[in-house]
């Protein structure tokens, strides 16, 4: 069984802000049915660009639900600029940590938030920059480089924990290893 913190359990069994949000003016989706987790985030932003309300709908495991619930609690009352700076670690920290295999749940929260903000601002999120490395979960080399740099990751397993990349068919694991090496060799 996963070693979930009391906060994760609490937000899973009693999730806050569930359901569609009436009057939402920023909606972001991340994940997919095939991946096994997906999140739809609803934001209600006022004229001062402050998030006055937030809600979510999530398909996924306990940590996906808890991460979504935590995310809505974190962003409520924040300005969009502040919300845009949130990272997956902020979500994980709010929950007193996630098992490392479940870090991708917090990454999904961050991704949905980015999309919801872009939706509110009417900005098109361009097709992901970079080159797809993991076909199963559509993860690019740039995303892998980012997460490796930010978290000082040394192994493919940890990349998989964060991004899912390499967790499907496994064919891209060698490529991920090359990316990790190149990031660290460049210092």
């Amino acid at each position: 069984m996963w070693d979930y913190t009391d906060k994760v359990k609490d937000h899973f069994l009693k999730p806050r802000n569930v359901g569609e949000l009436e009057g939402a003016n920023g909606v972001g989706e991340a994940g997919s049915l095939n991946c096994g987790d997906a999140l739809k985030l609803f934001l209600k932003v006022n004229e001062n660009e402050r998030i006055v309300d937030a809600s979510f709908m999530t398909f996924g495991c306990a940590s996906a639900v808890a991460s979504s619930s935590a995310l809505t609690e974190i962003v409520k009352g924040m300005t969009l600029d502040a919300a845009a700076k949130l990272t997956n670690d902020d979500i994980s920290d709010y929950l007193d940590g996630l098992p490392k295999e479940k870090m991708h749940c917090s990454v999904m929260g961050q991704a949905a938030l980015k999309k919801a903000i872009a939706d509110y601002r009417g900005v098109q999120i361009m097709a992901k920059p970079g080159e797809i490395v993991c076909e199963c979960f559509e993860v690019t080399d740039l995303e892998i480089i980012d997460v490796v740099k930010a978290n000082g990751i040394k192994t493919t397993e940890i990349v998989t924990d964060y991004l899912k990349a390499g967790g499907g068919c496994g064919q891209c694991l060698e490529r991920i290893e090359e990316i990790i090496e190149s990031v660290h060799s460049k210092g």
Binding site: F12, L13, F59, G60, C61, A62
Partner: peptide, 24 residues
């Protein structure tokens, strides 16, 4: 439309032990 780990942990809350074919 629902995910196995979530189902299992909610069953667990009710004292029911089962398992899943889910990835998570």
């Amino acid at each position: 439309a629902v995910e196995g780990e979530s189902i299992l942990l909610m069953l667990d809350r009710d004292g029911i032990c089962a398992s899943s074919g889910s990835a998570c």
